[in-house]
Nucleic acid binder design. Structure first.
Length: 401
DNA sequence: AGGTATTCACATGAAACTATTCTCTGAGTTAGG
DNA sequence: TAACTCAGAGAATAGTTTCATGTGAATACCTGT
């Protein structure tokens, strides 16, 4: 009986008119043919990069902009164009794009150099070599022939916060040591004030040129969404007002185009799952809720055990009293450690964990001074109550409490 | 009353330590000539 | 003698611990009126 109904289900699924034509167009790794509302910026950057085609070293460039403002997309676009032209004209130009956020790929000095060497065909072990040895290997293989290298470091702020700014210093210095090769560096940062606490020497040499990507406004977001929706959805699927609402939601969150596209895609998926052949406005709200919930549950799930236990203690405390502090959390946390058979960490560490949980947005934290009674963090949960219960369940399961 | 000093309970920083993963090297072992 | 095995040294890295210093305001303690 079961398989009968199921095969019917699948048949139905295939028979009905799909909402999507090409869902890829809404996914975050999709590279569109046109990048709306970024012409000026792209031209500006292209102008800065252009000397590379004459084998002159372009100025180092720094690009700022909030997430989802088209930085990466634009620079990749320019990069492809440059490479194409250089190939046509036989210009020895190489461009490396590195996303420094990627864990275990490009988030330390060693790894960046090792990765670059690998791109050049030099096999470098993941560990075991001294860093300067890796530098030597890199320089050796790089200097084999005369050429121009452009190094694009995406999310460079992550790199610096993780590994310090000596890397950048070394890279700029490396450039002056290279004989055969000219290298210029393009740094991309989500953080607008990132460069402020950089060593001034590094800052001045690195940001010879600066470009800022402003957030999209709601109208621009609408254009982007329409463009992509045309590719992704079947004609006449989207009800009036859907695009507008989607754009409005995302514009509220500092004009993040990626978010807007996600919202539209998830809304589409929800509509499809409900067997609807129209994408109506209320799916946007549902999508918003679902995205947020998925994000939260996913972060909870991927936290290390100690973090999970800390979070669990916070949830329990939150149920018992309406205001509590680091010390309370630590006491309860120790209890749970004992119950679960985990070795408790020091208060110092737990204090950092609390800060980390705040960073990922699971909790909200405020440093307050209670005068005579010390200075501590006041902790509140940063997720809606319905989700909290779900989190609690997950944690109890994962930690088998 | 008004002003200053204390004091609490952590926050925040820096350095040192630990465990793990990995390479490289050279000594010892083995198999084949 | 060449090929192989294996232990030990040395590196990078993530996650902690240890030690040290910082901090904001409620309270305790003065002081002169």
């Amino acid at each position: 009986m079961v398989d009968l109904s199921l095969s019917g289900f699948f048949e139905n699924f295939l028979k009905k008119n799909p909402i999507f034509v090409d869902k890829k167009a809404l996914q975050s790794n999709y590279t569109p043919g046109v990048i709306p509302h970024r012409d000026d910026l792209i031209k500006q950057i292209a102008g800065i990069m252009a000397p590379s085609l004459r084998l002159e070293r372009p100025s180092n460039l720094f690009i700022y902009g909030k997430p989802g403002t088209g930085k990466t997309l634009s620079i990749k676009h320019i990069m492809n164009q440059l490479l194409e032209t250089s190939k046509d004209k036989n210009i020895p130009l190489e461009i490396f794009y590195l996303n420094c956020k990627l864990k275990r790929v490009a988030d330390t000095e060693y790894r960046i150099i090792a990765h670059l060497s690998r791109c050049l065909g030099q096999n470098v072990p993941a560990t075991g070599l001294p860093t300067d040895e890796v530098y030597r290997l890199f320089v050796n293989i790089l200097e084999k022939e005369k050429k121009l290298v452009i190094l694009i470091l995406d999310e460079i702020d992550q790199l610096v916060s993780r590994a310090g700014d000596e890397i950048l210093y070394n890279l700029t210095r490396l450039n002056s040591e290279l004989k055969n090769v000219d290298m210029s560096i393009v740094g991309i940062s989500n953080n607008l004030i990132f460069a402020d606490h950089l060593d001034p020497r590094i800052k001045s040499s690195l940001s010879e040129e600066e470009v800022v990507f402003p957030p999209y406004n709601a109208l621009q977001l609408q254009d982007i969404l329409r463009e992509r929706a045309k590719l992704a959805f079947r004609d006449n699927v989207i009800e009036d007002g859907v695009i507008e609402k989607c754009a409005a939601y995302a514009a509220r969150e500092h004009g993040d185009a990626r978010r807007a596209l996600d919202l539209l895609r998830v809304a589409g998926e929800l509509a499809e799952r409900k067997n609807k052949d129209k994408l109506t406005i209320d799916f946007i709200d549902m999508a918003e809720e679902k995205i947020e919930k998925d994000r939260v549950l996913d972060t909870v799930y991927t936290q290390p055990k100690q973090h999970q236990l800390t979070l669990y203690s916070i949830i329990i405390l939150n149920n018992q009293q309406n205001s509590f502090f680091t010390g309370d959390v630590y006491e309860l946390y120790k209890n749970f450690c004992f119950k679960v058979g985990l070795k408790p960490l020091t208060q110092r560490r737990v204090s950092d964990i609390v800060a980390e949980l705040d960073m990922v947005g699971l909790i909200n934290v405020r440093v307050i001074s209670k005068g005579r009674y010390g200075r501590t963090r006041e902790i509140t949960l940063g997720v809606p109550t319905t989700t909290v219960n779900k989190i609690k369940k997950i944690l109890e399961e994962v930690l088998n409490l």
